[in-house]
Simulated assay, not measured.
Amino acid sequence: MQAWSSTVVQYHRLRNDLAVIRLEGDAVPFKAGQSVSVAVPQNSALTRRYSPALPPSLDGKLEFHVRAVPAGWVSGGIVNETRPGDVWQISDPQGGLHVDDSGRDVVMIAGGTGLAPLRAILLDLTRWERPPNVTLFVGGKSPRDLYAGDMLWLMASELPWLTVVPVVDQLHEPWASDRWNDRIRADVDSAAKFFEPEHCWEGSVADVIAAQGHFSDRQILVCGSPGMEAATMRALVESGTPAELIRR
């Protein structure tokens, strides 16, 4: 199996359990929305699948959003130990998550770092002459958990065809602080915008989607944890959305 090398050029810790890693190297022949197999020097014998958060580029730029999962040797190593200069091995692009050129409006539903491939697709759509209207539902545990809120706010303000709907399990933040989030809010430009509780819909992503009715005339893209995807699929189908319209 062919593999491509990519070198970490930037590491950004956004939350206690989440980091964004940017790399440059070989041009990897994937499509926006696909996942790739990743091997990192901290655990080179193990591979994990992650979806790039940027569309493919000839100059080999890649970006990954990685959340450390409990007992996750690879994800924990990436979030806690990645340093600029690390060389990753990328291989085996797979997946059919995409937006077609039918002109139909699009509903995207993201849970946590499931946002990454959808963000790659959104950025790819900016290259289209006439992109479709897109509504992005993005879910988290609380407003603080919406780790890309400032980026999504900016995208929604600049792209007239994009609407972002933040959805959180609870509007109130947990009592425990997150020093990385606190540092980001203290360091960013005062003009930067974040999704505060008053901007968010409260409830599970599946419940909020179920309340919208059917989406039988839309393209539907779903990406998140297996549990989130299963619950969202069930909500969509029970609300009247044909299962064959849903991509994940």
Rank of each mutant, 00 (worst) to 15 (best):
V99L: 04
P117F: 09
P52Q: 01
D145N: 12
G139H: 08
G95S: 09
A68G: 06
L97H: 07
L115K: 13
G111M: 08
I78K: 01
R144P: 02
L146A: 10
D59P: 11
T126H: 12
D100R: 15
I78A: 02
I109Q: 01
P56V: 08
L54D: 05
P131I: 12
G114E: 05
S75C: 06
T82K: 07
I90S: 06
V134W: 00
R67E: 13
V106P: 04
G114Q: 05
I121P: 12
T113F: 09
G60V: 05
G60C: 10
P84D: 02
R144V: 08
P131Y: 03
L58A: 15
P56T: 08
S142R: 01
E81F: 10
H65C: 10
W73V: 15
P56Y: 07
P132A: 02
D59G: 07
S57C: 14
G77Q: 10
S91R: 02
I121E: 00
I78Y: 05
L146D: 04
P132I: 01
A71T: 13
V74S: 07
W73I: 15
S75E: 13
L123I: 03
V107N: 08
G96V: 14
G111F: 01
G85Q: 08
E129H: 10
D59V: 15
D105G: 13
D100P: 04
L122G: 03
